[in-house]
Simulated scan of single mutants.
Amino acid sequence: MSDGKPPRHVVLVGFMGTGKSTVSRRLAELLACGTCDVDAEIVKREGEEIAAIFAGRGEREFRAAETEALRAVLGAEDALVVATGGGAVLSPINRELMLRRGFVVALTADPEQVIARVSQDPDRPLLQGDVRRRVYQLLEDRKGVYDFAHLTIDTTSLSVDEVVERIAQAISRFRTSQHSI
């Protein structure tokens, strides 16, 4: 962190279907802080659903709205657990914002587990058509983009509580190391 202080927020990144929204709510309960889903913030700010933004304005406009929403959320004074959309990490600006203002946790999962989790969700505009092919293609396209995170957890065979506990332990270690510098 550029100011030498521990980060205010915990930012969850990862591909769709890795558990960001579910984990964020449970982690916020444990940490006794607020939570914010960046996709929900975009919908609130833009006045339309994610799929409608993609369809009507395109991915580029959606990504611009995503950066503005992320900037606003991470500018909050009170600590938050922030669940980002799966593609939020595609922007170098977004990655920099996350690292500067949060402890970043990347959630991963086996591709077949992701497919099982997202295949019945009609609100995934990037998965129109052959879900299996799209998931594998997007995972290949995004290989390495989550590597900037402070912590990576594979959620494939973990319960939500196990994921939350691992994050809480890592945050504690991170904050301790930040204070000792």
Rank of each mutant, 00 (worst) to 15 (best):
Q113W: 01
D37A: 09
E48A: 15
T156Q: 05
V11F: 02
V163F: 01
D130L: 04
S180Y: 01
F148V: 14
A116P: 00
R71S: 02
T67H: 03
V145R: 12
F15D: 09
A51C: 12
M1N: 04
G14V: 10
V89S: 13
A83H: 02
A116M: 01
L99I: 05
E68A: 12
L151M: 08
Q178W: 14
D78S: 14
P122G: 01
N94A: 15
G19F: 06
R175V: 11
L90W: 00
L151Y: 01
A72E: 15
L27F: 11
E41H: 12
F62E: 06
P125R: 01
L80N: 06
F174L: 13
L31K: 11
V81E: 05
G4K: 06
P125W: 00
V114R: 02
C36H: 06
G56Y: 04
T176F: 11
L74K: 00
E66H: 00
L139K: 13
R101A: 11
S91E: 10
R26F: 06
G14S: 08
E61M: 13
A109G: 03
L31A: 12
A51H: 11
S2E: 03
M16W: 07
D130Q: 05
P6I: 08
G56K: 14
F54P: 09
A83N: 03
A64L: 14
R175I: 04
L139F: 10
E61W: 07
V81F: 07
D37W: 06
I50L: 12
R173Y: 12
R117K: 06
D147Q: 11
F148R: 00
E112D: 15
R124H: 06
T22R: 10
I93R: 15
A65M: 05
M98F: 10
G102C: 03
V160Q: 04
A65V: 05
A40L: 13
D78E: 15
S2D: 04
R173K: 15
K44F: 09
H9T: 11
D3E: 05
A116F: 00
I115Y: 08
F103K: 02
C33H: 10
T152H: 09
L12N: 00
G102S: 10
I153V: 15
D123S: 14
R173Q: 15
V145G: 01
E41P: 05
Q113F: 00
E77S: 14
L31D: 07
C36Y: 07
F174Q: 11
D3N: 13
G19Q: 08
F174I: 13
G58M: 02
R25L: 12
T152A: 15
V73P: 00
L12F: 03
L99R: 15
C36Q: 13
R63F: 07
A106N: 03
K5M: 09
E140I: 02
P122C: 05
F103C: 13
I50R: 09
E68I: 02
G56L: 07
V13I: 14
T35F: 10
S159M: 04
V89I: 14
E41K: 10
I53E: 09
